[in-house]
Design a binder for these strands. Structure first.
Lengths: 343, 343
DNA sequence: CTGAAAGCGCTTACAG
DNA sequence: CTGAAAGCGCTTACAG
């Protein structure tokens, strides 16, 4: 019942552990193992179903061939699919992926980074939470390979792959303006995260560039941590208090979903009574009737760029100290919720 | 830059590695370490930021405090959320979770099981693919703790947590019959998996128990691997060929989503022209207008039951040889797509 | 109360 | 071409 080891293989073949190890690690040629010996070893390994113990290998080499992926919420459409693509891409390169969700909680994020560190991950892909600046600085100081995705830590230079939130928001707002909307409500959450502040800046800039008066910028912010019910209530209040609005811009997809609910409660029809656009796509927006215009995150591109960048750093093709930032362009997908305005 | 080890801590304190190890593992009392020594050790560990190397610990103990979660697709709503809950619950018990997606591919599933095996996971939660019977039998023979979720392997006795697919399907069909629908089309995929065959059986039994004639059972099966386009096409063909149908039962949520598309293409209104129900909930069904009646999987219950069962087996509170099966009752959620029939 | 030492299963520099 | 042996960082039975 005991697990079989290299020693067992070596003994059975009257050879040394060294030889077995060389064969397993594909160093037969390099180390001059004869083809006959190599075959003997390979055959027995297959016959016995031997698999090298990775704890021993990690302990010895300090490399685990594992990367740690820390996301906000693996149950979420965006992160779940990013995770899936990263895993496939990592596997192609001989790496496994360890993932875990922070739920946007600083303590959880810190614990995860530490725990993965102890498991000797070779590198990280991290969606940062707001308060983990110190941990990130420590990783940097200790020269551990990592790349930040989705959001940055203010004032910290790191490798990153993020969306151009400013541009996406600017273009999405412009799309509304081009189609004749003038009184656009912007609904977002209270947040210091760059992704959220950039989205608001892009919106404001587009309004400004179009020469629309400042009074026509209507912004509602809600608390991320409030219940869905409470958020919808405050949206309803906002919508009723601003009957002049001809369009709504939701800064995230979950706000968009709640917003659609809120509009129904106000008996407003999309797009006849009011147009709607949202940042971040999801299945719902595509299949809803009317379907919703969005600034979409190219999931595949984000996932592949981040794992590729990380692997480069791990393999030292890219110096960790020379940080690289990839800024991905969002895709404006025009659907039924924001048609050219008639009047 | 070198990582700090127990040896370093011991040396700096003029004590032995043994003492440090006992403190770290909370065995001070049991082993009679003096409180003073214990405090000294704890303080230095904190000061130096020491973390025990888990590869060494795993190698020594053979336990990794890690469980492997093998799902069909981590990017999918159901599995993503199951994974999240399992992770939280495992963490509470001091375990980490390693997850990975099979994409319903036998080879991938086999590789994952083996790879996790080498990483010394203490147990598995697995959504089986069709062809991995041998691997499952091997785990069983070698007494590795595992539980199957979502689907079973025919003729293999294991621990499992599954949905009562038969009952869900039976009840969902009955709901249609109760509301006056008589000519119900059942749309499913070709599959030997118990979950799919049970769903069909439940449907057939409900029809039979209601005394509806056999001719009124209309079943369409499509290939899971076909393109969305192709599947929708065959649905359209089926719907047009059976204009007498007054309701459609989709056996999975992705079929339901495609089906809604197909009905639109046929210019049929839900529920005025035809009622719709689907197995498996998702966000879309809830928010769509009209919203769709479903047999929902209680995600939280499934996740918690499976991790609890696995932990019991790992901790030997439950013998692996005495298999336990938890059968979770689906929840019928009645929405707008299947109202009482007028006429 | 505490320490010296074996051993988990590998990799690899060194020796022949 | 191949082998003996050190050492990665822990845990734990044993000794005192």
């Amino acid at each position: 019942m005991k697990k079989i080891s290299m020693k067992d293989i070596a003994r059975e073949l009257n050879t040394s552990i060294t030889t077995v190890s060389f064969v397993i690690n594909g160093k037969s040629a390099e180390m001059g193992i004869s083809p006959a010996t190599e075959k003997k070893v390979r055959d027995l390994i297959k016959k016995r179903g031997f698999n090298p113990n990775s704890a021993a290998r990690i302990l010895r080499t300090g490399k685990s061939k594992t990367i740690g992926l820390i996301v906000e919420d693996i149950g979420n459409y965006f992160f779940g699919n990013v995770a899936k693509i990263i895993e496939v891409e990592a596997n192609k390169n001989g790496y496994s992926v360890f993932f875990s969700s922070t739920e946007n909680n600083d303590d959880k994020a810190r614990q995860l980074i530490n725990k993965m560190r102890n498991s000797s991950v070779d590198g990280y892909i991290i969606t940062a939470t707001q308060g983990i600046k110190d941990e990130i600085l420590k990783l940097k100081k200790e020269n551990v390979p990592f790349v930040l995705i989705d959001r940055l830590i203010p004032d910290v230079e790191t490798n990153y792959v993020i969306l151009d939130n400013y541009l996406g928001s600017y273009n999405l707002t412009n799309h509304l303006i081009d189609n004749g909307y003038r009184k656009i409500g912007f609904i977002s959450i209270y947040s210091e995260m760059s992704m959220m502040t950039e989205r608001e800046k892009g919106f404001q800039k587009a309004i400004e560039d179009a020469g629309l008066p400042a009074q026509e910028r209507h912004v509602l912010k809600v608390n991320f941590s409030d219940s869905e019910e409470k958020i919808i209530k405050s949206m309803v209040k906002f919508i009723k208090a601003n009957p002049q609005l001809d369009a709504l811009f939701f800064a995230t997809n979950y706000l968009g979903v709640m917003g659609i609910d809120a509009l129904q409660k106000c008996h407003l029809k999309i797009p006849a009574d009011i147009a709607v656009v949202s940042f971040d796509d999801n299945d719902l927006f595509r299949l809803l009737s009317p379907s919703i215009t969005v600034a979409a995150q190219p999931i595949k591109e984000i996932a592949i760029q981040s794992i590729d960048l990380l692997l480069k750093v791990i393999k030292k093709e890219q110096k960790q100290s020379m940080t690289v930032g990839e800024i991905i362009k969002p895709q404006i997908i025009i659907r039924e919720s924001s048609p050219k305005r008639k009047k």
